[in-house]
Amino acid sequence: MTDTPAIKIRDLGFAWPQSPPLLDIAGFDLARGEKLFLRGPSGSGKSTLLGLVAGVLEPQSGTIEVLGENMTGLAGSKRDRLRADRMGVIFQMFNLVPYLSVVQNVMLPCRFSAARRKAAGDDLAGEARRLLARLGLSDEKLLARPVTDLSVGQQQRVAVARALIGGPQLLIADEPTSALDADARDRFIELLTEEASGSGAALLFVSHDGSLASHFDRSVDLAEINRARATA
């Protein structure tokens, strides 16, 4: 099972309703534990690709296998279950649920997935605090503040802790550093790749900023693998 790739895409075709084809990918693979940088300008279909991988969107053609499961053959609820149990997602910004505390935000995936809850251990809050501490968020005063009061960098690190809780095998990050300044950006990526390595998870990191590529095992330009050029 673990020798199957984290992501395996073949002959993928996708278009939004009433729009020309956006994605047409002959082949794309992400190995287990691999940290991959996917570069592409905005509007190139990066976020759509992530939606397909996460299983919230369905392709018109082709296959997507994630962690050994064929997403295109799964019912919507099974894809939801796979994402809940085995993937961690980090957005560009506004990652946090405003009415939950920092620790509750980190524990959020455990509300929806029994597998993640089980993997995180009996003391969920303790595990959340451990992850936050590893990401440099251990100040109790900070943890007690409403999440909307945290800086963007702090919010993004909370989002990483949330993506990591319960040990998912695939992390998906959609431009998580675009709202950070250069210093914070580099530190954030170091933390993220370090934690991904530590947990053995594969990391699919998407950004338009090619200068970040050096932090990763491998770098792929979406324009090179995507044969559809309708939007650009």
Binding site: V56, S77, A84, D85, P98, R116
Partner: peptide, 16 residues
Amino acid sequence: RREMSILRATGARPGH
């Protein structure tokens, strides 16, 4: 809407 998509991304199913 943002809150809903966060919940979806962290594993909430439509039923949730």
